[in-house]
């Protein structure tokens, strides 16, 4: 099992957001997490990635059989966890190229590898850029600064492609994308899918799941996963809305 979350409780400033989440993700699987606004989807994603502002009050998270909660953010990344941010952060003054080069090389260092030669790195940048059909010259621009909403989301997938993660958690990567961009992003994700890695997509729209077909759909509601099913669950949610979940609880 790649990821095993058991009875996870997390709070911020004394306010409990996650109230006992259980989730198992195996290699090769795609999971979708849906749920109303403010129920803790992004919180769950950040806690897995290692955001320190949340207090873990109960439960455990095993990743590749090891206690994930012991690792600092950057080590989790090097161990193969990637978070596609719902709201990618703008970092004025740090160019995309530097940012990615530093990230790639630090991850390589973690695995005892030498830095990637400059030429090779730039070739990889170009290749991955094409994969997500980024045409604009983003390389010398500051990270996310002045990027449109859609560009920011594509940029997350680009970074994912550069870092080649084992477990990708994509937090609403589809929102704010036009139909073409949605297809491009989904294609990007699908190309990176393989038997050795897994993807968790957080989304509000069944539409994304037409492109990235999930093996499992979960409903996160008030800090708990209250319902899980196959891809048909997404269709059911789409037609019946979350009232239906509330009523069935």
């Amino acid at each position: 099992m790649l990821l095993n979350i058991k009875n996870l409780h997390a709070s911020i400033n004394g306010k409990e957001i996650l109230k006992g989440v259980n989730l198992e993700v195996n290699k090769g699987e795609v999971h979708a997490i849906m749920g109303p606004n403010g129920t803790g989807k992004s919180t769950l994603a950040s806690v897995i990635a290692g955001r320190e502002v949340f207090d873990i009050t109960e439960g455990e998270v095993l990743y590749k059989g090891k206690n994930l909660l012991d690792l600092p953010v950057e080590a989790r990344a090097s161990e193969g966890i990637f978070l596609g941010f719902q709201y990618p952060v703008e970092i004025p003054g740090v160019s995309m190229t530097n940012f990615m080069r530093t990230a790639v090389n630090e991850q390589r260092k973690y695995h005892g590898l030498d830095p990637l030669p400059s030429g090779e790195f730039l070739r990889m940048m170009e290749e991955k850029k094409q994969m997500v059909e980024i045409t604009a010259k983003l390389n010398n621009r500051s990270v996310n600064e002045g990027f449109s909403g859609g560009e920011k989301k594509k940029n997350e997938i680009f970074q994912m492609a550069m870092l080649n993660p084992t477990l990708s958690i994509l937090d609403e990567t589809d929102s704010g994308l036009d139909i073409d961009a949605l297809r491009i992003v989904a294609n990007g994700v699908n190309k990176l899918r393989g038997p050795e890695n897994a993807t968790v997509v957080i989304t509000h729209y069944q539409r994304l799941l037409d492109y990235i077909v999930p093996d499992f759909v979960h409903v996160l509601y008030e800090g708990r996963i209250v319902k899980s099913g196959g891809k048909e669950l997404a269709l059911e949610l789409e037609s019946k809305g979350y009232e239906w979940i509330k009523d069935s609880l």
Binding site: S46, A49, G50, R51, E52, P72, V73, E74, R76, A77, S78, F82, L83, F85, P88, V89, I91, V94, F99, M100, T102, A103, E106, Q107, Y110, V143, Q159, L163
Partner: peptide, 11 residues
């Protein structure tokens, strides 16, 4: 800081 570190860059 979190964004940068989440890409594997040390604190």
């Amino acid at each position: 800081m979190f964004y940068i570190r989440s890409r594997g860059i040390s604190e």
